[in-house]
Computed example of a mutant assay.
Amino acid sequence: MGTTELLVKMVIDRWNGSIVNLNKQLNALTDEQLQKEIAPGKNRGTYLLGHLIAVHDDMLNLLDMGEKLFPELAEPFIKKADDSTTQTPTAADLRSMWEKQNSYLQEKFEEMKPEAWFEKHTAVSEEDFAKEPHRNKLNIIITRTSHLQYHSGQIVLLN
């Protein structure tokens, strides 16, 4: 295995491990527990799950892997703060969306050649990428893995 393949494997393995970790946390929670705030006045578990789905949905475009699966989630889970009066999908629906999205992303990740991860993502221009080649697709996975782990740390507070 060459350096490129090894580096990609390390990053994708960490992403997959983080998904598995959050799935274990989610499976340990009831839908009712997921409706609770992680602390008084803070986000509910359902909001955090919806937020993660919406952010991961954005990755599809950033990585040039197609259109969002759940574009309707951007407004309530990215553009707005948690508000229990806003109509959002149920915990059960969010769990189903999460599973569908993870399966889809996994399939797309497996299709990518190791070298393709070092290509520019769609939010960077050719000119900027020439100056900053670290603004590549693999870096999107690194930053989103950190984001996922941050929110996993919050969701654990619901148990």
Rank of each mutant, 00 (worst) to 15 (best):
A28F: 14
A28I: 08
A28Q: 12
L29N: 08
T30Q: 15
T30Y: 15
T30V: 13
E32P: 09
Q33K: 15
Q35P: 13
K36M: 10
I38K: 04
G41V: 02
K42I: 13
K42D: 08
N43C: 08
R44W: 03
G45V: 01
G45E: 02
T46E: 05
Y47W: 15
L48R: 01
L49M: 10
G50T: 03
G50R: 00
H51E: 09
H51D: 12
L52Y: 02
I53G: 03
A54T: 00
D57F: 05
D58W: 03
L60M: 10
L62Q: 04
L62N: 07
L62I: 05
L63W: 01
M65D: 01
G66T: 03
G66A: 03
E67I: 07
E67K: 15
K68R: 15
K68H: 10
K68S: 13
L69Q: 12
L73E: 04
L73Q: 03
P76W: 01
P76L: 06
P76H: 05
P76D: 09
F77Y: 07
F77I: 04
F77Q: 00
I78R: 10
I78D: 10
K79D: 13
K79Y: 13
K80V: 07
D82P: 04
D82K: 09
D82R: 08
D82Y: 06
D83T: 04
S84Q: 13
S84L: 13
T85V: 05
T85K: 13
T85E: 12
T85G: 05
T86P: 03
Q87R: 12
T88Q: 11
T88K: 10
T88D: 08
P89K: 04
A91R: 03
A91L: 07
A92G: 04
D93W: 02
D93V: 02
L94N: 01
R95W: 11
S96M: 07
W98L: 12
W98H: 11
W98F: 15
E99Y: 14
K100D: 07
Q101S: 14
Q101T: 08
S103H: 13
S103L: 14
Y104S: 10
L105S: 05
L105V: 07
L105H: 04
E107M: 11
E107N: 10
K108A: 12
K108G: 00
K108H: 07
E110I: 11
E111Q: 14
E111R: 10
M112Q: 06
M112D: 00
K113E: 08
P114T: 04
A116C: 09
A116H: 05
W117M: 05
W117R: 06
W117E: 02
F118K: 01
F118G: 02
F118S: 01
K120Y: 01
K120R: 11
K120T: 01
T122N: 07
T122Q: 14
A123W: 09
V124W: 06
S125A: 07
S125Y: 06
E126Y: 09
D128N: 11
D128L: 09
F129W: 11
F129S: 03
F129D: 00
A130D: 02
K131H: 15
K131F: 14
E132L: 13
